[in-house]
């Protein structure tokens, strides 16, 4: 009798869980960003900008509405402030150590993040190291820099930058600011052999490490 009761209780809990759990969210232009607290992930919608398969850039993803919207490998369909809030929701801690004064000698701090990209028809999810070509072949180390105040002031729309940045919400701590466009330490561009053609919608997933 005891076993029967406990089995009924377990069945009740399981059915209640499935009844109350939210349906899986799907990204769309109306809902361009979602986050999963338990998995520690934020996913947002973006479009490929094929121009940066052939030109170097220092931007991985920039909000399409920002002033740098056409300067990145991916045009993000989400505002920078929403991306910042979603990262805070999953428990990421912003570094807030980058300023316009120290940017060229400082590497961004904050929670470490793994970035991957996938799209309709892709056989799997590709890591940022696969979709971005670093001429030095160094791994890309993304960190949650924060910088929401600078981002809202400058209105660049920067979401993920390829060198430490005082404006981008997330940036690459591997290089200090200016490594790409000022000091020429490295060149970065989209990997045309992996990424889909210009204009294709992709899903960028940022996972808290």
């Amino acid at each position: 009798m005891k076993t029967l009761l406990s089995m009924i209780a377990i069945l009740f809990v399981l059915s209640a869980q499935s009844a109350f759990s939210e349906p899986p969210q799907v990204l769309s232009k109306e809902t361009p960003i979602i986050f999963d607290k338990s998995a520690g992930t934020v996913s947002f919608l973006a479009e490929v900008n094929g121009k940066y398969f052939y030109q170097p850039t220092r931007h991985f993803a920039v909000s399409a509405t920002g002033s740098n919207g056409d300067k990145a490998i991916l045009r993000g369909l989400v505002p920078a402030a929403d991306f910042y809030s979603a990262l805070k929701e999953i428990g990421a801690i912003p570094g807030e150590n980058m300023t316009p004064e120290n940017k060229e000698v400082t590497h961004v701090q904050g929670s470490a993040l793994a970035v991957s990209v996938t799209w309709k028809g892709a056989s799997r999810s590709y890591s940022i190291d696969e979709v971005v070509i670093d001429s030095n072949k160094k791994p890309i180390l993304m960190r949650f820099g924060g910088n929401l105040a600078n981002s809202e002031k400058m209105k660049t729309g920067c979401l993920l930058c390829l060198d430490s940045c005082p404006v981008g919400i997330v940036s690459n701590s591997q290089y200090a600011y200016g490594a790409l466009e000022k000091r020429g330490e490295v060149e970065m561009r989209g990997n045309k052999d992996i990424l889909p053609p210009d204009g294709t919608a992709v899903v960028v997933t940022v996972q808290l490490l």
């Binding site: 030109q55 170097p56 850039t57 220092r58 931007h59 740098n68 056409d70 300067k71 790409l180 466009e181 000022k182 060149e187």
Partner: peptide, 12 residues
């Protein structure tokens, strides 16, 4: 102009 990364990152 687009061949200059400095210019390309600053202007359209």
């Amino acid at each position: 102009a687009s061949r200059s990364i400095w210019l390309e990152m600053r202007v359209n």
